[in-house]
Amino acid sequence: MAFNILVVDDSETMRAVIRKTVAMSGVQVGEFREAGNGKEALLVLEDAWMDVVLTDINMPEMGGVEFLREVKKNQVLRNIPVIFISTESSQARMDEVVSLGAAAYIKKPFMPEKIKAVLLDVLTKAYATRMAAEGGAPPPVAADEADF
């Protein structure tokens, strides 16, 4: 089973690094999409199904928290897991996004292994949900596939 992944960050550099990290993680990626802010991300989600979203918080136009609120308001999109990757490291901010329904929170700076671990955990849960609906597909990553 390949997963469609959306990365939302106003830094093109950071999107490229996350893309590389995901590629190295061993996760089977179907479509990989990028967006520069929450508004662009919502347009992507209207256009294509994404299995997981990795988003920054602090972005122009629409930040990650507002984006998450919009996703959770949408009956079709609300079950897509949203992982935050952000510099904002106060416990209050992390508690806020988790209470809004974020699947996980990764603090920048991060080690690639951290993204891999969180992504696999979230995708495994998403995989179980999809398996219940579709059945018969390989897991998100082969045990010896990760390249860290």
């Binding site: 602090n58 952000s86 510099t87 904002e88 603090k107 700076p109």
Partner: peptide
């Protein structure tokens, strides 16, 4: 962004 975000935290 990371330095000041981390500092602010």
């Amino acid at each position: 962004n990371m330095i000041v975000g981390n500092f602010l935290g």
